[in-house]
């Protein structure tokens, strides 16, 4: 019998183990009760098994989120590995829900699990998609808002990867600013 080469039967390991979370906006429950872990994975094959199995963001109800975070990091500002960090935030128009939301989210997931930001991938904590009536949002969270080089690498490569028009500016906000903002807008520490 011809022995199968490992390539044929060994799953492809990812650099990190990841956890996918789902947030459903149930007003009768507390915020943390509404946040549920769906599943964890650490191979390419297991990622696809999960991804192919769940709803696309455009099919979720308003107020729902998906969060993909490195295992051990909770998808909230307060987590020790998030609290000193921030996020690249992309806000989408209402029309983009049908044309762009799902493919941007998939591309974001592939960037994370594929470690697509070279050395800067170390700084990535996770990514969140928020489905909202006024416009959906996708963000990539990093762990230290002072690591400008890594943050700029991530922002520039992410913008290129989604081939966003140059005039579409992405802003990076620290979680500290976002959580303590007085007005409706949070100032950007960086932008690309």
């Amino acid at each position: 019998p011809v022995a199968a080469s490992p390539e044929q039967y060994i799953k492809h390991p990812l650099q990190n183990r990841w956890a996918l979370w789902y947030f459903k906006n149930d007003k009768s429950k507390s915020w943390t009760e509404n946040l549920r872990l769906i599943s964890k994975f650490d191979t390419v094959e297991d990622f696809w098994a999960l991804y192919n199995h769940i709803q696309q963001p455009s099919k979720l109800g308003f107020g729902c989120d998906y969060c993909l975070f490195k295992d051990g990091i909770k998808p909230m500002w307060e987590d020790d590995r998030n609290k000193l960090g921030g996020r690249w935030l992309m806000t989408l128009s209402k029309q983009q829900r049908h044309n762009d939301l799902d493919r941007y989210w998939m591309e974001t997931l592939l960037c994370l699990i594929g470690e697509s930001f070279d050395e800067a991938s170390e700084d990535v904590c996770g990514a969140v998609v928020n489905v909202r009536p006024k416009g959906d949002k996708i963000s990539i969270w990093t762990g230290n808002c002072q690591n400008k080089d890594a943050i700029m690498t991530i922002g520039q490569q992410y913008k290129e990867r989604l081939n966003l028009p140059i005039k579409n500016i992405l802003g990076y906000q620290s979680h500290d600013d976002t959580s303590s903002k007085s007005g409706s807008t949070t100032k950007n520490m960086y932008s690309v």
Partner: peptide, 20 residues
């Protein structure tokens, strides 16, 4: 060394069912 995968490589596995 780091396990990095580009999108083309990852996409090849989306619909390959793992026959374990």
């Amino acid at each position: 060394e780091k396990k990095r995968y580009d999108r083309e490589f990852l996409l090849r596995f989306q619909f390959i069912s793992v026959s374990m």
